[in-house]
Design a protein around this nucleic acid. Structure first.
Lengths: 197, 197
DNA sequence: AATTATATTGTCACAGAGTGACAAAAGTCA
DNA sequence: TGACTTTTGTCACTCTGTGACAATATAATT
């Protein structure tokens, strides 16, 4: 059982590369179609046609049509969780939260384009907006757990759960503001301003 | 064109009464089935069968299967919005928010049973949880607007949008805590404690 | 009470999202 | 090359949700 060591950072097996390419192709085709004909006006079949694959195969890349929109947010939020589990143990909860959320803001900031496209589509329907909202907040419980287990307990004037939720809200509202205004301002800076409750 | 004046408070036309009864019957049957076989394990057809109606008619009472779960929250939140539009104009934003959210807490408190049933079902799947989350927060923009238009502007140390979002979060987290603990505590009191940022 | 008008319901037909099963067509490795 | 493992397409199917239209029940009018 020889380990499948990636030859070079970009090579990494034909299969892996094709997979990533397919994913990207689907995403691009889908977002393009959503902009043209609306989210609901675009069927999975049409997306699949656009990248010349069967709709069955589409569902092997994405669990649902909605995943095309929420996947990006989910993967960013996931990184926040990863960071939470890598924080030095002597960090305090407040410091930890600050680090994690500013880091997240940085990640979002680097993907403004893609995020904006998705945001605009999601605002077309309540069901999609709900998905967006959830994608950002679903890590809340896990984040609480990670922080509670790893970080130095602190005499907080509020419970951890609420504190985490407040940070999430700050991030969420700040992102929305930042996406809705045209001029490119610094998301990280805006968040920092808001994290002083 | 004689006005359709309701004869007595409970009479109010046969149609109206039947409609409400049907709605309630559907809801009860559905929640019962959800508890027995799970949300996804229950089809609309089965719900319709349980109350002896066609599935087509079910969709005339509820826009979607999910509405059975989120409808309750939505109607409560809607009342908060109503109240916002009835607040005396000389109320300050902070006072107004306080009044509205404590009122909402009161409404939720009176419906703990029904809410708990729905909450437990919603936690079965991410998609449902997302719906729940959204149902509580979707009034945010309208609430902001109502407050901005009607209430006495105040020198706030944070913007209205964020302030409203924070109240929403406080309400949400407090409700979750309150639903998850067995002993019946006062939701209103807990919220009041949290509304001191 | 008989008769309009109006609202509700059931039936039918349909489109779209997902999913399981299995065979065909890749890619991988010796 | 040949044996092995993934990935893909096809097919069949369930479920949600909707438009159209006829049948039925309720309401209003005389």
């Amino acid at each position: 059982m020889t380990e499948p060591i990636p030859a070079s950072s970009s090579a990494a097996g034909l299969r892996e590369r094709k997979k990533k390419m397919a994913e990207q192709a689907i995403t691009e085709a889908a977002l393009h179609l959503f902009n043209e004909k609306g989210y609901h006006g675009t069927s999975v079949q049409e997306i699949a046609d656009a990248v010349t694959m069967s709709s069955r195969t589409f569902f092997r890349y994405f669990d649902s049509k909605e995943d095309i929109l929420s996947g990006m947010i989910r993967s960013i939020q996931q990184e926040g969780l990863t960071q939470a589990n890598e924080l030095p143990t002597e960090t305090t909860v407040r410091e930890g939260l600050r680090l994690i959320f500013l880091h997240l803001a940085g990640l979002y900031e680097r993907q403004r384009e893609g995020l904006l496209v998705r945001y605009r589509i999601a605002k077309q329907s309540p069901a999609l907006a709900s998905l967006f909202l959830y994608a950002t907040m679903e890590t809340e419980p896990e984040l609480c757990q990670a922080l509670a287990l790893r970080l130095k307990p602190e005499s907080l004037h509020m419970d951890l759960r609420f504190l985490v939720a407040l940070h999430m809200t700050a991030l969420r509202v700040t992102i929305e503001d930042w996406l809705e205004q045209d001029e490119e301002s610094s998301l990280t800076a805006s968040l920092e301003r808001r994290l002083v409750f």
